[in-house]
Design a protein around this nucleic acid. Structure first.
Lengths: 207, 207
DNA sequence: CCATGTGAACAAATTCACAGCA
DNA sequence: TGCTGTGAATTTGTTCACATGG
């Protein structure tokens, strides 16, 4: 069950969004075809994706929205709390700490760590920036499960390793560099410049 | 030539990073095998990806780093200037306006637009927030080619449509919603909650 | 020689089409 | 009847392996 493609998982998140939207409109049932048309998805892909995790629908009818929504929430771990520890409180780290999406549903920023003594002790909302020496303690005390790397590229690998050593469960990396995974601690890199450059390619073509 | 997979394009950005790294270390030539080992990539994939755009290497030798770097920069449109117009100067839009990656290489934030009269007129760095009514004027005056959506999900589609009408070339969307593409103006959605939820799935599995 | 560039083999992902069940 | 769940077909992406040429 653990060999699910990230593509599928990311679509489950989209499906969940759509279901929440429909639920907020008071809709109770939806077919894969309706979902697909309404949100520009593929009906057969919705069915294939969902079928990997069980039989959630009713043949001839469709899916019961509340039920499917709850199943997806559970699958994506949204029925539990996840503490995030942010490493690096420069401009990116600070913005992420305030980002609503990181303080929503089961997610909450519970720790801030920086190697710069000048930043240690600063307050950001209700949190105080801790020194790197306290990383393991912070992870233990807060029960954080996700680390967020907002450090310079040169420090990213060692920061990831430190998070792994501290017992973190998974890491989201905003440094523009490839991280070598260790001890099975998943790493996902987000790189906005890569996204910009993809658009840049199409713009260069257009000319 | 325009039917290049986004997967390939995103890897080209990574290759470019690696080449810039090597160039800064004074390295002049590199083989696909060396690149792959150094940065945890696949040698045959590097060659396949590059081969789509021409013959950049020298058989028996490898790739001349400066030359390949320049070719990749040109392919990704990094040899030209791209102005970014940000729609929505809430917390996300403000953070993006200050983000170094958006004010680097050929990219620069050249316009800020918000529908909230209370925000119009505010200064952010050297820029003043403009009203939505001035969107087309801003795009024309600044020559912006990329729009950045940092508006609420409910406003995202109409904001995209407005950008298209204003003559924008491509759009990066941070609103958690699917946008319907029109007039061939590429849209790329970045959704950090989707990324978090992917990690959340693996964490839920681990238990 | 040796690493590129590339067709062929393989693997993954998506779409099709329909059997089977409410 | 109508939509799900699913094998089969197709498309897309990756890896292999080697002929080619500097």
């Amino acid at each position: 069950m653990s060999d699910v493609s990230p593509l599928t998982l990311n679509r489950l998140s989209l499906y969940l969004r759509c279901l929440q939207d429909l639920a907020s409109q008071g809709v109770e049932r939806v077919s894969s075809k309706e979902l697909a048309e309404r949100y520009q998805l593929s009906a057969s892909q919705i069915r294939k994706d969902l079928a990997q995790f069980g039989e959630f629908g009713i043949r001839g009818v469709g899916y019961e929205i509340e039920h499917l929504r709850d199943r997806l929430r559970a699958l994506l771990g949204l029925d539990r709390r996840h503490g995030l520890v942010i490493l690096g409180v420069g401009s990116v780290g600070t913005a992420l700490a305030r980002f609503a999406g990181f303080n929503q549903d089961g997610y909450r920023v519970v720790g801030l760590v920086d190697s710069d003594p000048a930043k240690v002790g600063r307050r950001l909302g209700t949190l105080r920036v801790e020194p790197v020496a306290r990383l393991t303690a912070v992870v233990r005390e807060t029960g954080a499960t996700i680390g967020v790397l907002a450090v310079p590229a040169a420090a990213a690998q060692s920061s990831y390793d430190a998070l792994v050593a501290a017992g973190i469960g998974a890491v989201l990396n905003f440094a523009p560099t490839q991280i070598r995974e260790s001890r099975g601690v998943r790493i996902k890199t987000v790189d906005l410049r890569v996204d910009l450059e993809e658009l840049g390619f199409y713009l260069a073509q257009a000319t």
